[in-house]
């Protein structure tokens, strides 16, 4: 138990240190634009269709679940409010984060892990090449930027999914639905012209992307012992990313809405 706690502290310490190093190297982001653009592609476009598909169904599920309850009280015309708020505040960022952890995070942990066990990272070290700058910074930045971008996609498609269900299953017409969506998202506290429910969600997504990128890279860099070690690091990367995302989600929700 004490041992596990110490291990946890050491892991988190290593991850925070790595994140700090990434922060210090953001200065060279312009110099690394080619590598970063590639990571935007890896973290963004390659999972775009997954986000569309999952987001659509999540929106439909939320609409269906809550719609049935609402209609018992004759309040089904409020469905747009519920779907849009739950997508933007919670579902969009979180679902996107889970998809990214499982696809992009695991892939980059395996990639860096393979480099670690093949001595490629050692080779970089003896050539005095900064692996954080070359490998980690572009990957963390890629996830940190693409997570909010994909979260917007997820929010949007989820709200559209909700519209489909409202129209077909709940008899709420589309105009009415979108009126309530706009009404729900518009009012409270604007930042850069964005409604609070949207920008808090995007901020969450930014944090999730950073967390997933940092943890996945940290696990990859520490991989030891051949193919088994790579598998092990991938498993830990996905598991720890999801756990850390959920914990971060709780605290961010508490900070914004608590």
């Amino acid at each position: 138990m004490i041992r596990a706690t110490l291990d946890l502290c050491r892991d988190v310490g290593f991850q925070l240190e790595l994140l700090g190093q990434v922060g210090l190297r953001l200065r060279s982001a312009f110099h690394r634009r080619g590598l970063i653009a590639d990571q935007f592609f890896q973290s963004g476009l390659k999972v775009f269709h997954v986000v569309l598909f999952v987001g659509l169904f999540v929106g439909m599920i939320v609409a269906l679940q809550t719609g049935i309850e609402l209609s018992r009280f004759g309040q089904e015309d409020q469905i747009g409010t519920i779907v849009s708020l739950s997508m933007c505040r919670e579902m969009g960022p979180f679902i996107t984060a889970i998809i990214l952890a499982a696809t992009v995070g695991s892939a980059l942990a395996a990639e860096l892990g393979t480099m670690a066990v093949n001595e490629e990272l050692t080779a970089l070290e003896v050539m005095s090449i900064d692996k954080v700058n070359l490998l980690v910074m572009p990957r963390v930045l890629g996830l940190a930027v693409m997570c909010p971008v994909l979260a917007i996609v997820c929010d949007t498609i989820g709200i559209l999914g909700g519209a489909l269900i409202s129209e077909s299953q709940l008899g709420v017409d589309t105009t009415m639905y979108f009126d309530t969506v706009v009404e729900a998202l518009a009012p409270v506290g604007n930042l850069l012209g964005l409604p609070k429910d949207i920008y808090t969600g995007l901020f969450k997504a930014l944090v999730f992307g950073t967390v997933i990128g940092t943890i996945s890279c940290a696990e990859g860099l520490r991989a030891r012992g051949g193919a088994v070690g790579v598998g092990e690091c991938t498993r830990r990367a996905v598991r720890n990313s999801i756990i850390a995302t959920i914990i971060a989600n709780y605290f961010l929700t508490w900070a914004f809405f608590g």
Binding site: E111, M115, N118, E119, E120, T122, A123, V126, M127, S128
Partner: peptide, 20 residues
Amino acid sequence: LRALRERMGYVFQDAALLAW
């Protein structure tokens, strides 16, 4: 150490080239 490593070359058993 950096300066010294610049004067050294290390040939790894499996070459350790960057795969990408």
